[in-house]
């Protein structure tokens, strides 16, 4: 429907306000991160008079920011890989296999997606202590992997069931086992779905705070999010520095989003359309 010129003005105003509101805190963050603490004190809201990157140098050289980022990367990559493999196998079995408990597994997965992690974290903490995994990235990787499985199953199942069963049956007739069929027939078709699962899960793992905060107490074993909150209490009189690290933590996610935006939005809304 074509909009008449007049009516479109208030709409653009509304959208512009929302856009500014969405971006303003981020701009504030970046601008603050290039101010010196003294300048921030004098001029908290305006543009910096002198741009300094010393906060970033401080963040990267004197603080374990890079170690934390590396920890986050490891945790994210490994737990996404584990949960995607486990999820894909289960989703394949649900789609093309027959076994008792198929429907409960699917229902359970859907329900589990919504279970708040805070409910699980106290018992898991005790378990991780008993497994001697506290302060070890393994604890977070293990728990994240488990937490990401239900969504992986659910999402991949929804994709797998759109795969024509003739394709699968043809492969079986050719003598391929289920693992072969999954790997060389279904997986190549499911690439977009796998990317979506990977992206959504990776962003979740990168952003998670509560579990990382509780399981990883040793400074060097922290993830970027947990380390970041630590700085908040430690550098209270140097807020530009804290926001420099905040900017660094947000940067990879924002860059990822901007680069893969189309796939991202398509993935997020995959099921809502058709």
């Amino acid at each position: 429907m074509k909009i008449s010129g007049l009516a479109s003005i208030p709409r653009h105003v509304l959208l512009a306000i929302l856009t500014v509101a969405s971006l303003a805190p981020l701009i504030f963050m970046v601008l603050t991160s290039v101010k010196s603490p003294d300048e921030y004190e004098q001029n908290p809201a305006g543009l910096p008079h002198t741009v300094t990157f010393s906060n970033y140098v401080h963040a990267l050289v004197d603080l374990p920011t890079l170690t934390w980022a590396l920890n986050s990367l490891l945790v994210t990559v490994i737990s996404v890989a584990i949960s995607t493999v486990a999820g894909a196998m289960a989703a394949y079995a649900i789609s093309f296999g027959t076994f008792r408990g198929r429907t409960p597994l699917l229902m359970g997965s859907i329900a589990a997606i919504m279970v708040p992690p805070v409910v699980l974290v106290v018992p898991m903490f005790v378990t991780m202590v008993n497994l001697k995994l506290i302060n070890n990235l393994g604890s977070v990787i293990l728990f994240y992997s488990c937490l990401l499985i239900p969504f992986s199953i659910f999402f991949l199942y929804n994709f797998f069931r759109t795969v024509p069963s003739e394709l699968v049956e043809a492969a079986v007739v050719d003598g391929a086992g289920p693992l072969r069929t999954l790997w060389s027939v279904v997986m190549p078709l499911a690439k977009p779905a796998l990317v979506t699962v990977g992206v959504v899960n990776a962003i979740w793992a990168w952003n998670e705070l509560l579990i990382a905060l509780v399981f990883l107490q040793d400074e060097r074993s922290r993830t970027l999010m947990a380390g970041l909150t630590l700085l908040q209490g430690r550098y209270v009189t140097n807020q530009p520095l804290v926001l420099a690290v905040a900017t660094l933590s947000i940067l990879p996610v924002a860059a990822f989003y901007l680069l893969s935006q189309r796939a991202f939005v398509r993935g997020l809304t995959a099921g809502i359309g058709k």
């Binding site: 408990g101 429907t103 409960p104 699917l106 229902m107 359970g108 329900a111």
Partner: peptide, 9 residues
């Protein structure tokens, strides 16, 4: 069916 599923679960 879905109720059964829940009981099963």
């Amino acid at each position: 069916r879905s109720r059964k599923a829940i009981y099963g679960l």
